[in-house]
Design a protein around this nucleic acid. Sequence first.
DNA 1: ACTTCGTGATTACAAATGTAATACTTTGTG
DNA 2: CACAAAGTATTACATTTGTAATCACGAAGT
Lengths: 125, 125
Amino acid sequence: MKKLPRISESEWLVMRVLWSKGEATANEVVEELAGRTKWNPRTVKTLITRLSGKGAVKYKKEGRMYRYYPAVGQADCVRMERKSFVRRVYGGTTKPMLAAFIEDADLSPQDISELKKILERKGKE
Amino acid sequence: MKKLPRISESEWLVMRVLWSKGEATANEVVEELAGRTKWNPRTVKTLITRLSGKGAVKYKKEGRMYRYYPAVGQADCVRMERKSFVRRVYGGTTKPMLAAFIEDADLSPQDISELKKILERKGKE
DNA sequence: ACTTCGTGATTACAAATGTAATACTTTGTG
DNA sequence: CACAAAGTATTACATTTGTAATCACGAAGT
């Protein structure tokens, strides 16, 4: 498994767009983010370029413009971020962290039963 | 509730020491961290100073030296970090995040049953 | 062919961060 | 009292991040 680049706070927003769309032009990313942020389009371009430099996204030329797509898996990045988070905040001990997380979370009854099911499954075997 | 300063990755290590000890001199922090990091003592001092500047730690003079202690609550900081994490990585939707978290976690049977108990409690009412 | 416009490329620049080194100050000691 | 030791305060400097502006190039219109 290749090693993942470090993705900054702002860059995560861009990556999430690319992961959700599969691929997109710079402008599509800009539009998609327009609702959520007040970034200047230049800023979005910069972030895309940096991500490309880091190897987090790749692109293929399409006429004069590029079509960008993720070069790293979302699940992997999330896992990395999660581990980093637990280490930073809890020094690596996951359970107290999960406990606090659950306590604090706003969960629907369905959510709760699904999570319980997952725990069941982990419990056996 | 006062607003919390932003604590960087490295600074978290220092804060965790202060939270766990209640208070400490700079050198005590250095010693405590000696096992976990290869930081130069100067670096630790710098981090403490910065945290002090941010208002995350306070100190009282004690003879020629300072005794530092946290000025912000650990629970509050953890909650903030947690929210920031969920927002960054999952765009704010907590449940899928928790699910993946649990899937991926290394949990003892006791952990599992405790977590289930927490879920139970959240479920009723 | 020349100008213009949309794209990517290059450059900018301040704040935060990681990681220290150097300077200054207080105090115990010879 | 002068000086060294031990702390704190100030300064340093390369990277990363946030947030853009400017440059350059090729396509498209006139």
